[in-house]
């Protein structure tokens, strides 16, 4: 009989003990867990207000044990702005997909960053509209076939996949902008640190914080979860490079 066996990995307190509705191998669940862990790490649960967006991410409130408001499609950054302006001592985050944030909501996203709103956005880039059945997204890779780009994305027809982290990193209001993925143990650790840093920066009121998560959508990609992970590594990362694109120092805002 072993004496002091310790639990070294468990479900974070902020994440409710309910099964996710996500498809097998979908990375939403990993991102959810990391956000919940960041909230727990800084003991923010009781003063956090989440903003749910439209898409597979809408059921945020079923999983996170925090107050949540549901935003219209694309408007989560504006809603988060309103919440933060009304309650500036609360921690406010939105969690949005690529259709929501980079297409219909790009104006709200850019202006929220540019105003330096002290909120955190977790951005899930999986190169398709997931919930509506895998249509072309602004992030769909060139040549990628989707249900509305059956011949593959052609830049003459649909333009190029948009790199949101790079765009937002150019804005003065952005305090932290990073792109992460879950493809390797190293990348998983980097993702966890980036999400923690985003919340830490918000806590320290340094400005707008943004983490883009390259994510798999096995169902709409028509790949197994394991092959989907390989696609993130081999096809997405070369176009959407990982890393921290902006990291403001506390002294910069004084």
């Amino acid at each position: 009989m072993q004496a002091a066996e310790k639990k070294v990995f468990e479900r974070p307190r902020t994440l409710k003990e309910v099964p996710f509705h996500f498809c097998p191998g979908c990375h939403h669940g990993i991102a959810h867990r990391m956000v919940a862990e960041a909230i727990d790490k800084f003991q923010l649960r009781e003063r956090t207000i989440g903003v749910a967006s439209v898409g597979c991410s809408v059921f945020l409130y079923d999983y996170f044990d925090v107050d949540v408001i549901e935003a219209p499609h694309g408007r989560a950054a504006a809603v988060a702005t309103g919440v933060k302006r009304a309650r500036n001592d609360r921690i406010v985050f939105s969690y949005q997909g690529d259709g929501d944030l980079a297409s219909i909501g790009i104006a709200e996203t850019i202006h929220t960053a540019n105003r330096g709103e002290n909120i955190t956005i977790i951005f899930i880039n999986n190169t398709v509209y997931g919930m509506t059945g895998g249509q072309l997204a602004p992030t769909t890779l060139l040549g990628q076939k989707t249900s509305t780009s059956p011949y593959g994305r052609d830049f003459m027809q649909d333009g190029y996949p948009i790199r949101m982290t790079e765009i937002l990193a150019t804005l003065e209001g952005t305090a932290f902008a990073a792109r992460v993925a879950f493809t390797t143990p190293k990348n998983i650790n980097m993702a966890k640190k980036a999400i923690e840093k985003a919340f830490q920066f918000q806590k320290e009121e340094l400005g707008f914080t943004f983490v883009e998560v390259l994510s798999a959508c096995p169902t709409n990609w028509g790949l197994s979860p394991v092959d989907s992970m390989k696609r993130v590594e081999n096809e997405m990362i070369p176009y959407f490079p990982l890393g921290i694109f902006k990291e403001r120092k506390a002294a910069d805002v004084l």
């Binding site: 408007r75 504006a78 809603v79 988060a80 309103g82």
Partner: peptide, 15 residues
């Protein structure tokens, strides 16, 4: 569009 959604967020907190 943004203004009405900021309002949605702010008023949701009870102000």
């Amino acid at each position: 569009v943004a203004a009405i959604n900021m309002l949605l967020g702010a008023a949701a907190t009870g102000v």
